[in-house]
Write a protein that binds this DNA or RNA. Structure first.
Lengths: 203, 203, 203, 203
DNA sequence: TATGAATGAGTCTTCATTCAT
DNA sequence: GATGAATGAAGACTCATTCAT
């Protein structure tokens, strides 16, 4: 990757991170085409030339931005997962919980982050490196599903979670396609019909 | 009045269509950012200035390209739907059928079209006009699902189809996220667990 | 001028005039660079190609527009001159009258027309044909000054009028150069010091 | 911060200046519409992209060009003012002097500069920033009038100078409007009738 | 006689990237 | 190691004018 782009200095490392963060924010806010050298440098308050000094190309910077955005997204979700209390939940309550944890959409920023999540999924398709990154995010998301399910007193198997997530993603996609649709609502309703298939942990 | 964007002549209509087709192809092949005046003009073997003569702006041309790509996609699916014979099908056979009809992925072109379908879904989010377009495509896709289900001797209700499509879309998204994943296979497997919920037409 | 551009038809004549009027309006509203084939055609509700059919070139159309704008300006001034009552006027009253007649600036349209008057004066410099046109306008303006002076009981000689107009124009130029300046006020004040040199008609 | 439009280097400063000079020359020679990125770059023997590197927009470059042209004009006038000997002058001699100092028109270049001076005055009207610039030039011109008057043994008050300049400007405008008119001659004659109003310094 | 269609040339501006320092 | 400076290529779009019909 970085043959001569040392940046092993503490300072270099810090600036690199600042650049990635700036790029990540732009990515989430305005989509892939918002990530430009100039825009990133400006937002990070770092000289333009640093963007090509620390990253081989715009694509390289973008990769990092995608990873960063994914981690940011994951961190937010993780935070909400931690807050989930351990207690048995009925089907309807569980659907609601899953929605609020994985598809928070109250603020504009949250909605933006959600849209960005799906943009990243789809647009990574044309780049193997990004695909790998995206797969990792998906795995973590799956683990977090297991965690929430467990805390809610349900047994969660691999295929079961896959199916759950497919339903969720499909519902989101459908909602995004409909102008002004209420994404969390759509997810909750879609979930309503599947959650009951999940066996309780101790029957 | 309409001193431009006329294209009322047969010839004008033809050129306009050629431009849209070229833009649509570029969209499918290389994504949204591949649709540029220059690229479209070059592919259509039409002078650069004609691209702004026939379309008010690049956005306008892009809208048309999205619509075109959607119709192309739909036409292909429709063709496969027409070929579906009327006969009762077991769960496994139905899952296979749905997959082959809606998620054909044998040639590179077919896989490209499939990816593009999902790109369009997600990227239209930032533009209301495109969202509207995409919603229409989704509706047709839903109708075609009903048709295939009916031909297979199943009763298809609105929510049932929504759920079916959500599963499919979620599975595709998951597969696209996984490098080298077999999309049709993923869909078929995901479908395997839902199809049996669909009641037969005459039990 | 128009070797093959017949347009001797009544209809042709009418359309030509409509085009000139549209171009003239644009000229007054937005300056020389606002006069474009497209803009003129659009405003006149006449096909684009007619603009080059009835006029050899954009320059030709522009000449006509300048003449039209000049006539329009003159017509407005003339109208105000007609309304001037015959009566002896003191110096101050005369300065006020001249200002209101020749430098009406109450509405935005009037101010625009005034600015345009001076734009035309200056920009015609680079084109002999336009210069000739502008000279004519100036002569009429001089005659109208004589008329107003006469109606006010003053004797008006050629040099006297020239001097009067020079003062006016100079004051306008100075006012235009000052942001937010009150043009009529500037003219009135400048006039205050000269008008008294004009001998009364019957001493 | 200032990742562009830097030009803090001597070299950068030089190139920036070259661009402004080129734009200024074009402005004087061909009017406002002659100032284009391409034309400026070509004349300055500098790459096209440099024009937008050193100036945020064409408007920005144009502002600089207007300022430059104004300074050039002022410098020339100042030069002629410096050369004015201190000595009492009769009315006719003073009129001649003022004309030769402020309205030099012997060479084609001088005449061009003169025309440009008035173009700038009028065309700046539609832009507040340019208006401000033009007001400054006017002030300096007024000061220089005072200087010449003083050197000629006359007392010069503010209103007196304003009136003088108005007469001059009005005369120039009238002359410019007349094809082939002798601008200096017109100014001299117009001045002939005003200069005598200027009281001598030591009566 | 008109005009819809068409386009080459040119408009301003942005951008990823290189390079001298 | 860092970066200000620089630029070729391309971006979207406008325009005066021509021409076939």
């Amino acid at each position: 990757m970085s043959q001569m782009t040392a940046a092993t200095t503490p300072k270099g490392e810090r600036r690199r991170a600042a650049l990635v963060a700036a790029a990540g924010e732009l990515l989430v806010e305005g989509g892939f085409e918002s990530v430009r050298h100039r825009a990133v440098a400006h937002r990070a308050h770092i000289p333009l030339a640093a963007t090509t000094y620390y990253f081989e190309s715009l694509g390289d910077l973008l990769s990092n931005a995608v990873a960063y955005a994914g981690e940011l997204d994951l961190a937010a979700v993780r935070g909400r997962v931690e807050a989930v209390s351990r207690r048995k939940r009925g089907d309807s309550a569980l659907a609601k919980l899953l929605t609020s944890v994985f598809f928070a959409c109250d603020t504009a920023a949250e909605r933006g982050a959600l849209v960005s999540r799906y943009e990243r999924m789809v647009l990574c398709t044309r780049d193997p490196e990004l695909t790998r990154l995206q797969a990792q995010v998906r795995n973590v998301l799956a683990e977090l599903h297991v965690e929430v399910l467990t805390r809610s007193g349900r047994r969660a198997t691999g295929p079961g979670v896959d199916r759950l997530m497919a339903i969720e993603d499909g519902a989101v996609l459908a909602a995004l396609t409909t102008h002004g649709a209420d994404v969390p609502r759509a997810v909750r309703e879609a979930l309503g019909t599947v959650v009951d298939d999940l066996a309780p942990l101790h029957p």
